[in-house]
Amino acid sequence: MRIGYVKNWRQVNTSTEKFEKMKKVGVEKIIVELGTNKDNYQKMLLESIESMVEKDILVIDSLDDLGDSIVDIINVVRKLDDKGLAIHVINTNVDRKFVDDWNLQRLLLKQLLLVLVWVEDKEKNEIKKRQAKGMEVIKALKDSRGSGRPKKYSQYAKDPEDREIYFNVIQMLNHDVPITKIAESLKISRNTIYTIKEEYLHNDND
């Protein structure tokens, strides 16, 4: 059986469009969430999945209907997988022959779960990287305060234009541009360039 689910706690008008789409793909029963509390809609969805039997297909308009976060969506997809169910996401525009083949729908669900888990892991890793980078910036700022006046040109410079000049100097040095030419091009002193070069080489050796 094809069972549709409409998350309707935000926009009622959109749901009418979803009803029409579901009728076109052969949905026999539609579960509608009419609550306004976003914490309750997934509870109702999970309870509805519990009442489904093996080889049923949950039909939704988009993955957003399953939850507001990737963790919520993975939770629902895992529950579908554990119960031996399949999923049909209408806005993916899957070929009709795939829609009518339960085994293919089942395979798509497993592939979807793998992709979602991969995305979740990637997001976690990106957050960790940003946190680590933030800690580096904080440490660098603390070190600069402890050693006197903060450096005007550095990768942690407060002014974005000063940071840009710093990276331009590094790039030009790496391309063997003469220091005199760099000074003329960026309108900074040769001593400043030597200081940036020395700091860069020191950090690179660390």
Rank of each mutant, 00 (worst) to 15 (best):
N103F: 06
F98N: 10
L109R: 02
V89N: 09
D82L: 14
I87D: 02
R78C: 12
F98M: 04
R106W: 07
V99L: 05
L108Y: 11
L108P: 02
V89H: 07
Q105E: 09
K79P: 00
N103K: 13
H88A: 02
D100T: 10
V99A: 03
I90Y: 14
L85C: 05
R106P: 00
F98Y: 13
R78V: 13
R96F: 07
Q105D: 06
I87F: 08
L109C: 04
L107E: 10
D82W: 01
K83S: 10
L112Q: 09
R78E: 13
R96S: 12
A86V: 05
A86M: 06
V89P: 13
N103E: 12
L85Y: 04
I87M: 05
Q105V: 00
K97V: 09
D100H: 03
V89W: 13
A86N: 07
R106T: 07
F98W: 10
A86W: 01
D95S: 12
L107F: 06
L108K: 08
L80C: 04
D82Q: 10
G84H: 06
I90V: 03
V99C: 07
L113F: 00
L104V: 13
R106K: 12
A86G: 14
L104Y: 11
N91Y: 15
R78P: 07
D81T: 11
V89A: 03
I90Q: 00
D95T: 09
R96H: 08
K110N: 13
V99P: 08
L107T: 12
N103C: 00
Q105C: 10
G84L: 11
K97D: 04
N93E: 09
V77G: 01
L109W: 01
L85M: 04
D81N: 10
D81C: 01
K97S: 06
W102M: 03
R78S: 11
N103D: 06
A86S: 13
T92H: 14
N91T: 15
I90W: 12
I87W: 04
R96W: 06
N103Y: 11
Q105R: 07
K79D: 02
N91F: 15
N93L: 13
L108F: 12
L108E: 06
A86R: 03
L108M: 14
K97Y: 01
K97F: 12
R96Q: 08
L107K: 10
V77A: 00
H88N: 11
N93F: 15
K79E: 02
L109D: 10
A86D: 11
T92G: 08
L85W: 10
L113W: 08
V94F: 14
I87K: 03
L113K: 11
H88V: 07
K83I: 11
L107Q: 08
N91E: 15
Q111I: 09
V94R: 14
L104H: 12
L112K: 13
L109E: 08
D101W: 00
V94P: 14
L104R: 15
L114Y: 01
L107P: 01
G84R: 07
N93M: 11
D101M: 03
L112A: 06
Q111V: 11
D101Y: 02
V99E: 10
F98S: 11
L80W: 08
K110S: 13
W102Q: 07
L85N: 02
F98I: 14
L112G: 12
N103A: 05
L80I: 12
K79S: 02
L114S: 09
R106E: 12
D82P: 02
D82G: 01
W102T: 01
R96Y: 03
L109K: 03
L85I: 12
Q105L: 09
